[in-house]
Structures are given as structure tokens and as C-alpha cells.
Design a protein around this nucleic acid. Structure first.
Lengths: 113, 113
DNA sequence: ATCGAATATGCGTTTATATGAATAAGGTCA
DNA sequence: TGACCTTATTCATATAAACGCATATTCGAT
């Protein structure tokens, strides 16, 4: 994909970055890594997802520059490259939380009336 | 799609929210609306995208709760529902900017040596 | 070298989403 | 009502992404 202007190119990359976040498993992976770096086996156990699936999702995150890897003997340690990603995700989760809260309030009102 | 636990359900919604952001046209729409509310015709002209495409992208944003609409005579005014979405996008764009900057620096080093 | 543990990839299938073109639907005003 | 402007939707097609399963690769240890 070739974009004509620089702005378009950046917007395209920006959207790509968001695409990397647009999957439940990858979100769980990012939040797990926000706690501390982990290897694939640990992540697989924590998320209770098949190992090939974890590996492929990690690859998407790595291709998107969201995580980086270092070999630790026979295993591969994954870690976040930039905590601002977590900040951004937390902001969005806040939006979601408030929305759910408002729905709950609305239901309460209906029940009370 | 039915999720077993509440955490999974929220993660799923979280990912959905990110999906709504994962498109260049929608990012441009959101940033345009972050300036001020606009109607479809205005957005179509600003983005230089076909009107049906704008409408469909706006629908995705509205379904995702990112924008809300109000009728203004014969046109429909779109506006952001939560500015934290822009904050989150700005954070991600910052990540992107730094990454590009680092690449540029690296190239400079190579050229200089 | 070879075995086992850890990680990554290929394949086939399914599901989701974007697009352009055409057209429908809703509202305004003469 | 009818012409017109604005916005939304339908359809067919194209692209991309996810999944489960099987298998390949990589590395350390014996």
C-alpha cells in the first residue's frame, strides 16, 4: 500500500497500530506483560489459550512494535516496548467503564420507577 | 458471541472499541470531529472520500459509541461522545512519532559514518 | 547426535470487514 | 405533491484475519 501524502501514511500506520490492539487475546497479553516480562509458556498458561495461538498473537504484537523479545536460554522473553500503549488502553477502558456504569444507572432508574 | 466471565466480556468490548479505531478513514473522521462537530457533507469534503463510505464509517463509530448524532434540519450533525478517545489516539501517535524519529536518527548515523 | 522442551509456522477453512456503484430513505421548501 | 438535497443502505466482490491442527524449528542437555 503506497500513500500519497505523509499525513496519510502516518494515519495508515496509526490505524495499523490500533489493529494490533483490536483482539481480546492480544489485550490480555499486553496487560499480562504490563505486569512484568514473561515467556511464551507462562503467557500460554495464564491466558489458557493454545500455544500456537499465543505465538501468532505475539508475532502480531512484535511486528507492530508493541513488544520486543530477548532469548533466555531455551525460552523467549517478551516485554513491552512502550508503556504509553497501556496508558492508551486504560483510557479506552475508562470510556468503556463509564458507559457500562451509565447503562447500569439507567436500569436502576427503570427498576425504581 | 457469549463470554463466560465478566473479565472476558469486558476484554471483548475493549477489543471491539479498538477495532472501531483501526481504520485510517475513521481516524481522520475522529480527528476532524475533535476539532468541532460536523455533518456528513462537511466530513465528506474534508476527507475527500466518497459519501457512502463516510456514512458507513460513521455508522461503525456510532455503533461503537464513539460519536453521537443530532439532526440539524436536513443534515445530521456528528460529534464525539468522549474526548478520552482522542487522548488515547494521541498517546499512540506519540509512540509512532518516537519510533519514526528513532528510525530517522539511525539513518542519520549510518549516513554520517 | 539425539532427545526433549520451548517456540514458531504452514495449511485449510471460516468469519469479518472494506470498497464502489447503485439506489433507497428522510427531510426541506416551493 | 413534487423536486431536491442530505444521508443511509444494499449488493457483489475483494481482502484480510482468526482458528484448530499438524508440524517445523531452535536450543540446551545428556
Amino acid at each position: 500500500m503506497i500513500s500519497s501524502t505523509l499525513t496519510q501514511e502516518i494515519t495508515y500506520l496509526h490505524a495499523n497500530l490500533c489493529s494490533a490492539l483490536a483482539d481480546p487475546t492480544r489485550l490480555l497479553l499486553l496487560y499480562a506483560l504490563s505486569d512484568q516480562p514473561r515467556n511464551v509458556t507462562e503467557l500460554t498458561q495464564e491466558l489458557n489459550v493454545l500455544q500456537p495461538s499465543v505465538s501468532r498473537h505475539l508475532r502480531v504484537l512484535r511486528d507492530g512494535g508493541l513488544v520486543r523479545t530477548t532469548r533466555q536460554g531455551s525460552s523467549v522473553l517478551y516485554e513491552l516496548t512502550d508503556r504509553r500503549v497501556i496508558e492508551a488502553l486504560d483510557l479506552l477502558r475508562g470510556v468503556l467503564r463509564d458507559r457500562i456504569q451509565r447503562s447500569a444507572d439507567l436500569i436502576d432508574e427503570l427498576v425504581a420507577s
